[in-house]
């Protein structure tokens, strides 16, 4: 099963694929998260809108990635932008859902205390609501990241590289070694990024909110 010669021979190309894959994940998750957090803040000001918008985005999420990338490909063409746009859109929902829940779950009495102290809406958002919701937001980012690592495989479908390339070649040519070479780094990337984000979560969670205190 494990063919060392082949790994050595394809190593430069594999590293290239890993880098591309990693770039897709980081860029799309970053774009998706920023859009999601801004949306979550806006929606938390207007809960009525959230009631309609979040289920609609949920339906959107059920469209298979392969279909979506296909459709975007028709309009945008065979470029990395197609991949990044598609992945970014998919990355939005988990972050949006978590950030929204995190913000609206902040205890009403804290908001009232803030207003009573003379804080305006923005100060309340940045000094109370977002710090209180940070844990939940990062949980959403973690979910998005792990999903995006697997969705990014689809980039190869429109010839845009990434680890999907190895997997497709493996399937098309019936060479199991290529499939393994594509999927092991992808799996490791998902695990590694997950661990990294867990670490980030512990650091960013305000000390007064950590469980062990």
């Amino acid at each position: 099963m494990f063919d060392l010669d082949m790994w050595i021979r394809y190593l430069p190309r594999l590293i290239n694929a890993i880098m591309t894959h990693f770039m897709y994940v980081i860029v799309s998750v970053s774009i998706g998260s920023i859009i999601a957090i801004v949306l979550a803040i806006l929606l938390s000001r207007s809960k009525k809108m959230a009631k309609y918008l979040i289920p609609i985005l949920g339906i959107f999420q059920t469209i298979p990635g392969i279909v979506f990338i296909g459709v975007l490909f028709i309009y945008i063409g065979m470029t990395p932008y197609t991949v990044i746009i598609a992945l970014s859109i998919y990355a939005i929902l988990p972050v949006l859902k978590n950030a929204y829940t995190g913000i609206i779950n902040v205890d009403e009495s804290l908001i009232e205390a803030g207003r009573g102290c003379g804080m305006n809406q923005w100060i309340i958002l940045f000094r109370i609501e977002l710090p209180m919701a940070i844990n939940s937001i990062i949980t959403g980012i973690r979910m998005s990241t792990i999903y995006t690592v697997s969705w990014a495989v689809l980039a190869a479908m429109i010839g845009q590289g990434g680890l999907g390339e190895f997997i497709y070649i493996g399937i098309n040519s019936n060479m199991k070694q290529f499939i393994v070479m594509g999927s092991i780094p992808a799996a490791l990337m998902a695990i590694g990024l997950g661990m990294l984000i867990d670490k980030l979560q512990t650091i960013l969670t305000p000390r007064g909110l950590r469980r062990e205190t």
Binding site: L110, E112, A113, G114, P131, M132
Partner: peptide, 9 residues
């Protein structure tokens, strides 16, 4: 206020 409302963060 009754709920005290200290900011936990």
């Amino acid at each position: 206020i009754q709920q005290i409302g200290l900011f936990p963060n």
